[in-house]
Design a protein around this nucleic acid. Sequence first.
RNA 1: GGUCCUGUGGCCGAGUGGCUAGGCAGAGCUCUGCAAAAGCUUCCACAGCGGUUCGAAUCCGCUCGGGACCUCCA
Length: 501
Amino acid sequence: MPLKVYNSLTRQKEVFQPINPPYVGMYVCGPTVSGESHLGHARPFITFDVVYRYLKFLGFKVRYVRNITDAGHFEEEGRDAEDKISKKAVLEKLEPMELVQKYTNLYHWAMSRFNNLPPSIEPTATGHIVEQIEMIKKIIADGYAYEANGSVYFDVEKYNTDFSKKGQPYGILSGRVLEDQIESTRELDNQDEKRNKSDFALWKNAPAEHIMRWQSPWGEGFPGWHIECSAMSTKYLGEEFDIHGGGMDLQFPHHECEIAQSTVCNHKMPARYWLHNNMITINGKKMGKSYNNQIKLTEMFTGTHPMLAQAYSPQTIRFFILQSHYRGTLDFSNEALQASEKALKRLWDAYEWVIAQQFADNSTAKDASLDANVVKLVGEFTEFMNDDLNTAKVLANMFELVSIINSIKDKHIQADALSSATVQLLQTQLKQFVEEVFGLKNERESDDGKLNGVLQLLIDIRKEAKSKKDFLTSDKIRNELAALGVQLKDEKDGGMSYSIS
RNA sequence: GGUCCUGUGGCCGAGUGGCUAGGCAGAGCUCUGCAAAAGCUUCCACAGCGGUUCGAAUCCGCUCGGGACCUCCA
């Protein structure tokens, strides 16, 4: 069964066929680095990290482009159209680029803690002003944009009229009809400069107080909020590429505008497959700026937010996100995150144990039906991923395997119940999916061996105490280590192991 | 108002018309000096009302509820 993905453009699952196999071009809308990332931002970055990882797993050569928006978009609160980054820079008395750097660093830090692979190219908007200006010039030359008072606007009406004839009206991605839009569009700043309310800015004239500004054929200004993605995706992935991803809230107007801009410039629909992840909700409401209900990632990791009962590690959050399908909403709650934390630990413990085991050679399975079941569960990993990346179902299978693995570990099931071939399949596939595809990693503090030595010593003392039935001493060791965050476990075979939380 | 999505057991969440997803929590048992961990068993579902069907959580209709986008937003 080939990989199928749900394409927002066609509103159905489609077989994924790259334009130039084995190469795949994927563009994902990155962060605006005018502030800290919150939990909601984590979803697309983790979701598309898994898409990236899975495509690589399937053998595709992927160029993954994810931009950094550092040029500042409008914040049209009240009357003054201001550049978010400039405004905040003044407040914090930082240079705009200093501020951008600070939040970019913080973002990269969070991404690495999630164990997200860095994209192949991470272009910045400020680094591509020239490309954006060139693109705008082309759109004007083709007659789909006009200048007004040093700003440039995209003529949505004309685009819609002309491209509807080619079967590509404005609104094709989000299923909107332009005529319905016009009446409902809100009053925006400088509305009078536009010919129509639905027109959007390609370039904005910079008022005197605006710090971030660039020279252009239309005077000093800054780019509009959609053009960077069109310019950079075209530059690095070509006029037509395979996958465009992002959050569902970007579908309209952002991605719709990208389609219009790119189509005028390149005479092609920019991307073939449009993938959109759904939102993280909190108390049933989307976590986002509009509701002022975000929990920043730094707050998640440290537990410093009134809504948080405790800190949640990056891998717990990653696992939490993987437990649901990316196109559904995912509701945040302490209970849900705590469940994820425990589940992840159970999965990881069993996983670590089984891949480290050397099983004796065993050509025939003593328990044929169990053996067959393991083969089936493992085989379904790709089957489920191929069905629009159903990570939730893969995890369900992994937990069924966890039970089997733990039973072998506890000797409820004999090791020779499974054939060597099956054990090997289990080990390799689990490793591939847990680490390579899902990108889960061990969060335990790495130590230099000294800590391990100290703990082994304590374990030995505890064993001795136990053998003498000196439970006072043995319990003291266990309890005091527990208070320090080290859990001792008595194994079935009389051994002991520890884990550090 | 327009476009669209959604309503699953205490909580989070999968789900192809017929075969109890899974996780966390609860209960019992096994193991254990006691714990913890683990294993086994078990309880608790498909918003409501109709319809299609031999059979529906799954398809259709209506009602009620929740949400997203239409404006910056992942």
